[in-house]
Design a protein around this nucleic acid. Structure first.
Lengths: 264, 264
DNA sequence: CTATTACTGGGTACACCGTACCCGATTAAG
DNA sequence: CTTAATCGGGTACGGTGTACCCAGTAATAG
């Protein structure tokens, strides 16, 4: 069985590794380590990108050209390694501009688009059971970046948290539904087609049975022809629509107030 | 490693099993089967509920008091069994009232609350990699139920689809973040506390470093004290706020028009 | 210098998983 | 009866993450 990964190992071990880099690095006996944690994380991400779904520790070792157990000298276990990989990808790319300058709505939209892109590039992230995130330097940076969208507004901290997690969950949930599993064997389009070809006959018979009154009214066959990106954008758009009144009402007045013109 | 399950086996096999029950059941040689697919699915759900995260096929067999390989006479593999389990739990309980009578907003709220409750009762569902759902009789029933919330509105089929999936993804995403992993070893509260106790020192040092400007402004410690249910309700509420104008505009006029009064 | 000591890399081995395969027992049909 | 199809169960295989042991290496103490 292609065993996918459960993230979240021992938080203490993961955190030690995440916030490493401040140790004085005193000289010690024994041979110099041939690897670094960073190289292992990098290799693991490369393997996961290539293999698609779940990766094996042995393959990470092979990628680095070392023995199977060697990486366990640097990382306590696979789950902790996954924590490191997730944190690494939580850093938004250098193309990430200033959200505050863009306005809250555009900022949150850019955030969702950026996250969507990360999931496109690293589908295996969606197979990780993330639960509560283990906060490392990179994911904190990503979060700090998200918070900048609320610059100039006086929203309660609590609500800001709720908003950011909502947007992220919207993106992640949609990505999981549409992006998952396609990378494993075949192209996304054929997977989509195969799926419909398999379900079609059963759906027709089910609808014909008269048991599903509302589904039967779905006359438009194009109603199901939705791309993941479109679904994500629609969901985020409606959420931001609902958020707009609160954001406008909480716009900070005072010295930082800036009149913004929009040309279109 | 506690290997969680990837759902979605061979769709054809899963669909055959999901829509079984119409075969003529002709008499055939050989001993009578001791089990049924339904009993296996039931037992598997019971095991998954008890074991928490991932379950093993051998434990399902033990639950039924049969040999390890016996259930493979009824189910082609574990992934297909998971498909059956998911479909089974996609049927909303008998307490599900008529959404059309409740109004679209209350209807969608009830839908989200019901789904949340299912995740509360069967946390392991969140560890399944659902991808495109394999539609069986029960999940079709659940979907038909959801569609009833749009009774009396003239929204395009496409948009209805987008809305339903958005609400579901919102619930699922939030549930994954807050509900996952707690069932495995300890109580949810202690997991939450442990998490903060572990992260706290690192967060403080990180904030003190001045690298995270916006996070540093989060003075209110209660800003992080959010329950999963609260996060889900907030997200759904804002989404429905944003949806409201479209729903009102699409209210069907004509014979089915009904004036609704709200007392409060 | 040598001896010590801590550390590294690698190989072997184990427990666990899903499940392919085979074989005796059972029950219908001819 | 014989024949044939099916069922239940046991064994075994390839895969996983990883505990453990051992030889080799390099900095330090004498």
């Amino acid at each position: 069985m292609a065993t996918p990964q459960t993230g979240a190992g021992d938080p203490k071990r993961s955190l030690e590794l995440l916030w490493r880099g401040y140790e004085p690095q005193q000289s010690r006996p024994g041979p110099k380590p041939r690897l670094t944690v960073d190289r292992i994380v990098e290799a693991a991400i490369a393997v996961a990108d290539r293999e698609g779904s779940c990766f094996g520790m042995r393959e990470v070792s092979a990628e680095l050209g070392v023995g199977a157990m060697t990486i366990y000298r640097y990382v306590p276990g696979k789950r902790e390694l996954v924590d490191l990989m997730v944190d690494r990808l939580s850093k938004l790319g250098p193309d990430a501009p200033d959200l505050a300058a863009a306005g809250w709505r555009e900022g949150l939209e850019m955030l969702s688009e950026g996250t969507w892109q990360v999931y496109l590039d690293h589908t295996w992230l969606l197979e990780i059971n993330q639960r509560r995130p283990v906060l490392g330097p990179d994911s904190l940076e990503g979060y700090d970046f998200a918070l900048s969208a609320f610059e100039g507004h006086d929203l309660p901290d609590r609500e800001i948290n709720l908003i950011v997690t909502a947007v992220m969950n919207l993106v992640t949930g949609t990505a999981r539904q549409y992006l998952l599993g396609d990378s494993e064997d075949e192209a996304p389009e054929s997977a989509e087609e195969d799926w419909w070809r398999a379900q079609g006959p059963y759906l027709e018979r089910a609808v014909a049975s008269g048991r599903y009154r509302h589904i039967a009214r779905f006359a438009d066959p194009g109603a199901w022809d939705i791309t993941g990106h479109e679904a994500m954008r629609y969901a985020v758009a409606r959420f931001l629509d609902g958020l707009a009144p609160r954001m406008e009402a909480s716009r900070r007045k005072g010295t930082e107030f800036r009149l913004r013109f929009r040309l279109e």
